[in-house]
């Protein structure tokens, strides 16, 4: 699948890509072995071959940095298809969108385990986890989560390649925010997280910080985790929707709506690395039945989220 990424090759635009497809030349290996198709000069073809050789090399060495950087955004889903088992999904929550707001929670779904990090407890440990990550996937991460991580930990750049699912979705005609996309894909969150959005996450954090409300923190961490699980579900659907069969679909049943307990039980209670949750008392872990919630998305919450994302765009670059 990844070998059919053509748009990043020099001299190849949408038209030529289609032409190559029609000529049955839409694979790197074919490009390397076949003569140039009609209407392609020898010079152009030579440049294309050089680029393809470099990509093949990167593929052989699993050089994801290079592949993510090189392959066109429109083809990023192909990287996800190729490296689905290596992707780690993450999301952060912050204390607000002001310039002096800080990261409150990080959740990362990594190698079948859910890792959560909470400010004041283990936030810095996220950097250690990040060192193990081969491919990082986020939603809106290129403008929000990743720069936030970099500035919060004062590192110039994260050590792993990163794909922003927002743009992958965008090229699949899916736009409007994570929650809306979930809805369109009929992914449902557990009922107690249905109304929670980015704005509420801020309030939850303040409840925890100012009043020591453990349940608020629990909800916040679960909300943040739910986002990352949702990312994996969306990724899986995008990839399969494009006709790729995933090598294995261990924890996701396409037929079932979103069900976070399934994920958590898959990972085991110790997956919750947050000392507040699970680890201290596994019985304390959020207790929600795998309920098929047909409820539609809270549109108010959705609009609020939209607004907050909009504000984010306005305030962030300037600070």
């Amino acid at each position: 699948m990844i070998r059919q990424s053509l748009l990043h090759l020099p001299g190849i635009g949408p038209k030529r890509a289609i032409a190559l497809q029609q000529a049955g030349m839409d694979d790197w290996r074919l490009i390397l072995t076949q003569p140039p198709p009609a209407k392609m000069g020898a010079g152009t073809w030579a440049r294309v071959m050089t680029a393809v050789e470099r990509c093949e090399q990167a593929l052989a060495f699993n050089d994801l940095h290079f592949l993510v950087k090189t392959i066109a955004k429109r083809d990023h889903w192909r990287i996800l298809a190729e490296y689905f088992d290596q992707a780690s999904y993450f999301d952060i929550e912050t204390s607000g969108l002001d310039y002096d707001s800080y990261i409150t929670t990080i959740a990362c779904y990594h190698k079948g385990n859910l890792h959560t990090f909470v400010r004041g407890r283990n936030l810095d440990d996220f950097l250690d986890l990040l060192d193990e990550v081969k491919l990082l996937v986020s939603f809106c991460g290129s403008t929000f989560d990743v720069p936030r991580i970099e500035s919060a930990f004062h590192i110039p750049r994260i050590p792993c390649p990163h794909i922003d699912l927002r743009w992958v979705c965008y090229y699949e005609q899916l736009a409007g925010g994570l929650k809306l996309i979930e809805e369109r894909m009929s992914i449902h969150r557990p009922p107690d997280l249905q109304g929670v959005d980015g704005h509420e996450a801020v309030l939850l954090w303040h409840l925890w910080e100012n009043q020591g409300d453990r349940r608020a923190l629990e909800t916040l961490v679960r909300y943040c985790s739910a986002d990352t699980i949702s990312l994996k579900l969306i990724t899986a659907r995008l990839v399969t929707g494009n006709g790729c069969s995933l090598p294995e679909m261990p924890d996701i049943d396409k037929e079932l709506p979103f069900n976070s307990i399934a994920m958590v039980s898959q990972a085991g209670p110790e997956a919750f690395q947050n000392p507040v949750m699970g680890a201290a008392n596994p019985g304390d872990a959020p207790d929600h039945e795998s309920e098929q919630s047909g409820e539609s998305f809270d549109s108010k919450a959705f609009r609020r989220l939209q607004q907050s994302r909009h504000q984010r765009r306005e305030t962030y670059p300037g600070f």
Partner: peptide
Amino acid sequence: PYHDWYRYALA
């Protein structure tokens, strides 16, 4: 310490 560097750890 972070990788081969020292990063600023305060907020």
